[in-house]
Design a protein around this nucleic acid. Sequence first.
DNA 1: GAGTGGTCTAGACCACTGT
DNA 2: CAGTGGTCTAGACCACTCC
Lengths: 283, 283
Amino acid sequence: MEPRPTVVPPPIQLRIADDIRMQIERGELKPGASLPTLAEMADRWSCSVGSARAAVALLKAQGLISSGRGRAPVVRVPPRKVIRSSERHQVEKDLAARPQAERATVGEAETNHNMQISEQKFRSRYDQIEAGPNLAALFRIEPTDPVLRRRYDSTDSADLLLSSSVSYMPIALISSNPALLDEANEPWPGGTQHQLSTVGVEIMTMIDEVTARMPTTVEAQLWGLPDGVPLILCRRISLDANERVVEVSDAEYPADRTELRFVTPLKPWPKRGKPSGRQGGRS
Amino acid sequence: MEPRPTVVPPPIQLRIADDIRMQIERGELKPGASLPTLAEMADRWSCSVGSARAAVALLKAQGLISSGRGRAPVVRVPPRKVIRSSERHQVEKDLAARPQAERATVGEAETNHNMQISEQKFRSRYDQIEAGPNLAALFRIEPTDPVLRRRYDSTDSADLLLSSSVSYMPIALISSNPALLDEANEPWPGGTQHQLSTVGVEIMTMIDEVTARMPTTVEAQLWGLPDGVPLILCRRISLDANERVVEVSDAEYPADRTELRFVTPLKPWPKRGKPSGRQGGRS
DNA sequence: GAGTGGTCTAGACCACTGT
DNA sequence: CAGTGGTCTAGACCACTCC
């Protein structure tokens, strides 16, 4: 006979955490407000301080509260989100076709995404590595073929990451213009799309693949991420007119400060083929 | 004078968790492999069992391992990701213009996203609510104006969520076809785009806004999510030819099983305006 | 049944925050 | 300096897995 699973009351930490979460959702605890102290919680739910602490840890892992030594835990106030729109793809492409003077001025603004120029430090590092099985499959080259890896990151005054990305291009594709292999030429006026144009490549399609995961301890430290905040991962694949993959770029964004926006234009319905019938449903 | 922060050795739990994480990244611990028992860890790092347990909890919160009563913690094996592509937007629009017979057959397949029809249960609930400030601003209507809310979710045989979404449309936009207000007409052959076509609306642009956050305890339970797996949030806004917002839909996806794909076609460069200059860099 | 991890407790020590 | 939360320990009890 199947052993019916023992009905077990939910752990105290869960009860506490859920009670507090509901208080937050109902607005009884507003963003910025302080939670009860551990001792008060232990008293209110008649449990040990350790269990109360476990409940606080749970809420932290869900990104709902912040806490630190000597400070009562606080309901986290959601930071304003920076919007990164796919319309930038077209803007950058248009820019790449403009004369050098114009590229230079706008090119600089591109790197400062919605932010004061203030105290940012940029870094770009180029090197050449073997494609490896993963990239080789995308580029349709041999795993031992060389690719140019370009790593970009910008940090603020406290050395916390503001943005970080890696880009890959097959060496065979770009070697006809040696300037593309030298990181001393960064920042390149007009960006990657203009770089590729110098070797006769025009990007016709961009594919963005988006997912998310929790950061490791070191990643959380580099980004200055509070507990319970995921990283958004975005791989951007650039195709030319022949559907050939010409660039792959991986970027990471802190989920609490980032919203990715993708705009998809749809083709109009044919003039005569307009949908008909006002009644739908089961027929 | 600024009090230089005391240099404090990193907590034992962090050292343990980081050591194990690096073993996983180096491949010394492969997906599916068992971690040492808590007692062994306590011995190896000469700490208490409690600290070893804290390290395991950290790795769980990062989504790297799974653990349960009586079982040694195990390196998590990443599940295959279901790809949800924005190209579906165009496919559904094309479908909406097809004759009823065709819509009916394909409409069913649409709901089964890449999965056997097997044991899924679908549910759709319609109701009418006040727009509220948030939706009112999007639709450019009054906060007290009514909107149709449609909630869809599908669950597997164990009642775990497979997909979940909510959609909003202003009542004023669709009330000329009462069939649209009745959930008994679900599933509607041809989907939302055909529904809107019956009231003279053609969607010309879709905007997807993507971010991520950690699930609450109850959400993790509903989805059957392991610890340390974020939820991907996607708000889809549909515009007609006049840039009027006609539908808003919010969907959630488990990040470990989901990859969102967005395809952006770029307009070709003008024939004569091709970018020039083989040399870039600082000018 | 032996061994495992999950929950919970109690208490010590330390780093940090406020006043 | 009093009070707070963060770290760490030791030990009890329970539910579960595996042999």
